[in-house]
């Protein structure tokens, strides 16, 4: 998980999804996740995955990096697929595609939406301690990442992590985590104190939390509705699954055209 890179992408992207409001993007994400949950057809799921890759291309961010981040759950899905193996590659493929597609959907959301915007949308529905905890955790991650970087450099320079001295390495690494905890706590306490002194009352300022709808929001919603409608249609009327291969081909063509367009556009 490259938290810093994800944060950079979310704050510096210029695509229509970056411009869309967090509230509508969460609706868009929920619709795609719902599609993945209700879809059990391999070809349709593959079509959805390729459609998501196409959306990732539209974000104009490094697609390979996004796909790598979103591929994280693949290894666990593989364990699950192997454990339920019955000789059907399609079943294994469905399990893998569900994991990969859901992860890619979430990654598309976070590489196009700064975390505070997402937290602001969910703030009204969660208790105060959780909403504040989310924000302070997010801030603390960056404090710790910086401290971790310094710590690892320090450990290497002073011989704290050396080859073949595994016990020493674990001991030094663990003490390093303890140090991170203690120093991080001091930083976090000061940070929270400063926020309170400056009038923080549980609300994070953001200009991307309004629910009024713009052109970019509509585009995101239409894509979400389209994907959900196809999945729902296939669930209600099984005979529609005969066309799942066409949807797969359509997604693949869209991906190729989008990739060429974005390549020449940038």
């Amino acid at each position: 998980m490259d938290v810093a890179i994800i944060d950079y992408y979310a704050n510096h992207g210029k695509s229509f999804l970056h411009k869309a409001k967090a509230f509508w993007k969460i609706i868009f994400t929920a619709m795609i996740i719902a599609s993945i949950i209700i879809t059990n057809d391999f070809y349709l799921l593959l079509g959805i995955y390729i459609a998501l890759v196409t959306i990732a291309v539209w974000t104009k961010l490094p697609v390979t990096k996004i796909l790598t981040i979103a591929a994280y759950p693949a290894i666990f899905a593989l364990i699950f697929a192997l454990a339920s193996w019955n000789g059907s590659w399609l079943r294994a493929g469905v399990i893998m595609l569900k994991a990969l597609s859901a992860a890619l959907t979430m990654v598309i959301l976070i590489v196009t939406t700064p975390y505070p915007d997402i937290f602001n949308v969910i703030r009204p529905i969660v208790p105060k301690i959780i909403s504040e905890g989310l924000f302070v955790t997010y801030r603390s991650v960056f404090i710790l990442l910086e401290l971790t970087d310094d710590l690892i450099k320090g450990l290497k320079v002073r011989g704290g992590i050396t080859r073949r001295k595994y016990i020493n390495n674990v001991k030094n690494f663990s003490s390093g985590i303890g140090l991170l905890l203690v120093r991080g706590f001091d930083f976090s306490e000061k940070f929270y104190g400063v926020m309170n002194v400056r009038g923080y009352g549980g609300k994070i300022s953001s200009d991307n939390t309004k629910t009024s709808i713009s052109r970019n929001d509509v585009i995101a919603l239409i894509i979400g509705i389209l994907i959900f409608a196809v999945s729902l249609g296939a669930v209600i009327e099984k005979s529609l699954l005969e066309f799942s291969v066409y949807i797969l081909v359509f997604s693949a063509v869209a991906l190729v055209i989008s990739s060429i367009y974005v390549l020449f556009d940038t």
Partner: peptide, 22 residues
């Protein structure tokens, strides 16, 4: 008092997230 709990929750949660990235 949340003043003490929130930073502790924040740092422990962040530490868990950072450790999961290594």
């Amino acid at each position: 008092k949340l003043n003490r709990k929130i930073p502790l929750i924040g740092i422990i949660s962040a530490l868990m997230i950072v450790c999961m990235t290594i």
